[in-house]
Design a protein around this nucleic acid. Structure first.
Length: 416
RNA sequence: CGGGGUUUAGCGCAGUUGGCUAGCGCGUUCGGUUUGGGACCGAGAGGUCACAGGUUCGAGUCCUGUAACCCCGACCA
């Protein structure tokens, strides 16, 4: 796209109320805009990135047979009363509303009960299993205190996956499959090296849950990391017994701050029993289905990536989730730039062309702030010698290249 | 929800013991000169001083209440 057409241009300053680096950069650069505490609008650049994150998640879940659907924000209390979770004492983040006729409804903060209710209507036989269903859906949570910009909000899109299996051992198997899928996802998102599977409290229904914790000083969580084994223990369950059970050595564990970007649980039958989600097994006996749930906060993941990938000048997007693949800057030479712009578009690249009539320094500064992986510059000086400039956002080196070399370097960068 | 803080132009801020037409920087608009790392000159526009009430001849300034926002803590299947 042409940057002159983008309504949400960069700003030198945003509200001094923001403290987290990601919220500052993402708003300065025109990716998000704050509306109320913990309530942010997603602008086109932000949506580009969100969609790419979502598509990486989709690809890695679909690969294992998971199916995408979408459930509702308006929630039937009767379903939640079966599990006892409509009570504000049990879940304290409920937003509730009512119909004109005064019927009380909940506004979704999670979807274990609705998905279990849905599956219970169709599940008849062990032959129907396993089932894996996921959605990208807006969660509303009445947090007492929203904080850290986009990292902890009251309205956010979560990818939540739910699995249904016939017994505990098949739950264990599918759980490992999707746990590994999550590892693959964070690798593809470009933060695999900083993300650690973390043993955490499993609540009332299982010994541990697994969190995916992204190391960052901004994080609210404290974890103890074994960098060699690539696993960690959340402070909430950190003790000698747990360390021994996991076969770790206390001397190799390093305390770090981190952001919880995903959390996976074995729910077993904790929801299938009260919601009567059962099936006939091989011996024609009724069995409750064994469930797992697996969540990733999209906005939080996006913001966490910015927390980790930035420098003083702005964001440094991992290549597969940047809003654009190429940021084209022209210094004069509009027509020449336009022909390269069209050529790159025809070659299938996503190009952001800063076609404004502003000084070069302004364009370079904005380019660094927005953070796309590649910067291509055309100018009179370069044009005279039939050359183009290529710079990678994560390096200070500048490459002066012929057209052929330029196209080939770009192709190499985005190959695979 | 407890403690602390803040609220004056889009953003950052100043505004004295209550006193005249509420200012400054950035941004923005127009004209001109500029053009390889946030240019310069000139001229403009932009305000329910968070909201409500009170004290006063007079309130951005003092008092009371409310709201929103920020930080720390608690909370976070």
């Amino acid at each position: 796209m042409r940057y002159s057409n983008y309504p949400f241009k960069t700003r030198k300053d945003i509200s001094s109320q923001e403290v987290s680096k990601s919220a500052i950069f993402l708003q300065k650069a025109g990716f998000f805009e704050k509306n109320l505490a913990g309530i942010y609008s997603t602008l086109p650049f932000g949506l580009n990135v969100s969609k790419k994150i979502e598509n990486i998640i989709r690809k890695n879940l679909n690969k294992h047979g998971a199916l995408e659907l979408i459930l509702n924000t308006l929630q039937d209390p009767k379903i939640w009363e079966k599990s006892g979770r409509f009570d504000d004492e049990v879940i304290d983040v409920w937003f509730k509303t009512e119909l004109k006729n005064k019927t009380v409804l909940g506004l979704a903060n999670t979807h274990e009960e609705p998905i279990t209710d849905l599956v219970s209507k169709f599940l008849k036989s062990y032959k129907d299993l396993p089932i894996a269903l996921y959605q990208f859906q807006t969660k509303l949570r009445n947090e007492l205190r929203a904080k850290n910009g986009i990292l902890r909000t009251r309205e956010f899109v979560m990818k939540d996956l739910y699995t249904f299996n016939k017994d505990e051992s098949s739950l264990d198997n599918i759980y490992e499959i999707y746990k590994q899928a999550y590892v693959d996802i964070f690798n593809e998102l470009g933060v695999g090296n900083d993300t650690f599977i973390t043993f955490a409290s499993g609540g009332s229904f299982c010994k541990y849950s697994h969190e995916f914790q992204l190391l960052s000083e901004t994080g609210e969580d404290t974890i103890y990391v074994d960098f060699d084994k690539k696993i960690a223990i959340n402070k909430e369950v950190y003790n000698d017994e747990v360390i021994n059970e996991l076969g770790l050595d206390k001397n190799n564990l390093v305390e770090r701050k981190s952001i919880e970007v995903a959390n996976i649980f074995k729910l077993k039958t904790i929801y299938s029993e009260p919601l009567k989600c059962n099936f006939a097994d091989e011996d024609n006996k009724n069995q409750f289905v064994y469930m797992g749930c697996y969540g990733i906060g999209i906005g939080r993941t996006l913001a966490s990536i910015v927390e980790v990938h930035n420098d003083d000048n702005g964001i440094i997007w991992p290549k597969d989730i940047a809003p654009y693949q190429i940021h084209l800057v022209n210094i004069g030479e509009n027509e020449f730039a336009e022909s390269l712009y069209n050529e790159l578009l025809d070659a299938g690249y996503e190009v952001l062309w800063d076609d404004r009539d502003v000084r070069p320094g302004v364009k370079f500064t904005d380019c660094d702030l927005i953070g796309n992986p590649l910067r291509v510059v055309v100018s009179s000086r370069l044009k005279e010698s039939n050359q183009f400039e290529l710079k990678y956002r994560n390096s200070s080196d500048v490459h002066i290249l012929s057209k052929e070399e330029l196209l080939s370097k770009i192709q190499d960068f985005y190959a695979n």
